[in-house]
């Protein structure tokens, strides 16, 4: 399909140029790359593993002693390594959950929007009802369905909530598209439904969905940390930003670094992702042109 690649080059090329001019988004992207890289090569950085205990340095504050640069926890586990480990876990889970929720959401929303009428009404009513539940219920109930701490289950549980918004966005997008005259023009040309779907609808929905995808990732990271914080997510000795912050909060009075280190990492990660998402949204928004 040579014509669609030309079209997307135009779209993506334009967006990339605009993104490069957005200083905040560029910084966020660089920082994010750095964090992701650090999370990936974490085991190479330090002699410690995330679950190795160092009985010589229980709850030692940050310093250069014995390569515990950001201190240790009550069991002498290296906080830097554990935080990076949690970072990797968060990114992995969020990526997985975002992917699944995008997939379900796009299919559901597009199906509802394209069918219209009663089917659309019923499908969106279902989404509305789930929406009116505090999302935590669904996640909590789902996480308790299966053994706690299973990553796949956790990702599914997060996705089960995340797809709702995607479905709404995609449906609204599809409905707006259906009213646009260029689809009518394509029909008037005699284009078959399959051609209309692939050449006209899909390219016009992809942009907003991609952008929304980058905004959903930080939400998923937040969810995961939140569940781990409540003890419903990742289980010890596995480290996640959420359970690290929870453990740190218990030791706050005597060892504040135990909460500050993972909290800073989380805030930094969320900040970068949000700023980048906002930048992408602006870059793709045709009104900015």
């Amino acid at each position: 399909m040579d014509e669609s690649t030309i079209a997307s080059r135009g779209l993506w090329g334009d967006a990339l140029v605009r993104l490069r001019h957005d200083r905040a988004a560029s910084v966020a992207l660089a920082l994010l790359g750095f964090l992701a890289l650090a999370a990936l090569i974490a085991p190479l950085l330090s002699p410690w593993r995330y679950d190795s205990l160092d009985w010589q340095h229980l709850a030692s504050p940050p310093g250069i002693a014995d390569a515990h640069w950001l201190g240790t926890d009550r069991l002498g586990r290296d906080l830097l390594v554990r935080t990076l480990h949690g970072l990797r876990l968060s990114l992995l889970l969020a990526g997985l959950a975002s992917g699944v929720s995008l997939l379900i959401g796009v299919l559901w929303g597009a199906a509802a929007g394209l069918s219209g009428g009663r089917i659309d009404g019923a499908m969106m009513r279902f989404v509305d009802v789930l929406y009116s539940l505090p999302y935590l219920f669904v996640v909590i109930i789902l996480t308790t369905l299966f053994p706690r701490g299973s990553l796949a289950v956790l990702a599914l549980a997060l996705a089960a909530v995340g797809w709702l918004t995607t479905a709404r966005i995609v449906r609204a997008q599809t409905l707006a598209l259906k009213r646009r005259e260029f689809l009518e023009a394509a029909r008037a040309t005699g284009a078959a439904p399959a051609r209309i779907l692939w050449h006209h609808i899909v390219p016009n929905v992809v942009g907003p969905v991609v952008v929304y995808g980058t905004l959903i990732v930080p939400q998923m990271i937040l969810f995961e940390s939140f569940l781990s914080f409540l003890g419903l997510g990742v289980q010890e000795p596995q480290a996640s930003l959420g359970n690290l912050i929870y453990a740190g909060a218990q030791e706050m009075e005597s060892a504040p670094w135990m909460v500050l280190v993972p909290a800073t990492a989380l805030v930094l990660l969320l900040l970068c992702l949000n700023v980048l998402g906002d930048g992408l949204r602006d870059a793709f928004d045709p009104r900015e042109r």
Partner: peptide, 18 residues
């Protein structure tokens, strides 16, 4: 605004308490 969006309650809580 950006900072506010990136500070979940389980981070603000301990920080305020601290």
């Amino acid at each position: 605004a950006a900072l506010g969006m990136a500070l979940p309650s389980f981070v603000i809580g301990p920080l305020l308490a601290l």
